[in-house]
Amino acid sequence: MERGAQALIKALLAALVFGGLVLAFHPDYRGAVRAAWRGAPDESPVWAANRLYYPMVGLPAGARDADAK
């Protein structure tokens, strides 16, 4: 079981690289990074795509307040 640890690390690193490529080339993900950087997560296209999915799970009040300011 412990042998899986090294494999896990490799898989995570690979996923991070893979994810980096998606962030670089997918416009919605680029928008999501920009929104996170601006501190306005509710402007993220990824968040917007999920507006109908469990709508009662919203962003924390702090994030919304920051955006409102």
Binding site: A15, F18, G19, V22, H26, Y29, A36, V46
Partner: peptide
């Protein structure tokens, strides 16, 4: 945290 999650989430999207 959210940036790391975005990296992994983007990979998971694929």
């Amino acid at each position: 945290g959210i940036y790391l999650a975005l990296l992994l989430g983007a990979a998971n999207w694929v």
